[in-house]
């Protein structure tokens, strides 16, 4: 069996050209660091690979889910129930309103299956998108947006 390489998976999903950035998220310390030359993730870290784009289109792929989810930033206010990603739209809408949503991107989340929950994915995506935009948003604000997004998702489902 060939060794597992997220970068290969990323390139297979999104193509090999362009500037791909890697972010490691440490589950215990909640610290996110950008991958430098020679950095290898530990078992305690999950990985998000991302390539920015500037056409208002976001594409998400998760290691545990088949297919690519595409979201246009101009349609965030439309609450489409795409495979239960109301929460992701709601989160990005919060970020857009705060002016810290980047112009677009292709994200691939590699998360260990036993910690892979919706809340965790939202947190990872939010942290990476903020890093891409380069705005100093406090972690507690991001956590609050994630919480709000989940409440909105529950609400939308209950009254759908």
């Amino acid at each position: 069996m060939e060794p597992y390489d997220p970068w290969v998976s990323y390139r297979e999903a999104f193509g090999r050209y362009g500037a791909i950035r890697g972010f490691y998220f440490h589950r215990s310390t909640q610290q996110m660091t950008e991958q430098g030359p020679g950095d290898v993730p530990t078992d305690e870290q999950d990985i998000v690979l991302v390539r920015p784009r500037r056409d208002g289109v976001f594409q998400f792929r998760m290691s545990s889910v088949q297919g690519v989810l595409t979201i246009r930033s101009s349609e965030l206010h439309i609450r489409k129930n795409e495979s239960g990603y109301i929460e992701l739209r709601a989160l990005m809408q919060h970020m857009r309103s705060a002016g810290c949503l980047t112009l677009g991107g292709e994200l691939y989340l590699f998360v260990r299956p036993d910690v892979d929950t919706l809340a965790y994915r939202l947190r990872l995506i939010a942290r990476v998108l903020i890093q891409l935009q380069g705005m100093p948003i406090q972690t507690k604000v991001i956590e609050e947006w994630c919480k709000q997004a989940q409440i909105e998702g529950e609400h939308a489902r209950r009254y759908a």
């Binding site: 362009g18 500037a19 950035r21 920015p52 784009r53 500037r54 991107g105 292709e106």
Partner: peptide, 22 residues
Amino acid sequence: PICSCGNRGCLEALAGEKALLR
């Protein structure tokens, strides 16, 4: 440096004021 368009070393990423600020 990485540009907002997803490429590296674009003129804007090297010489735009946003790049200078970074």
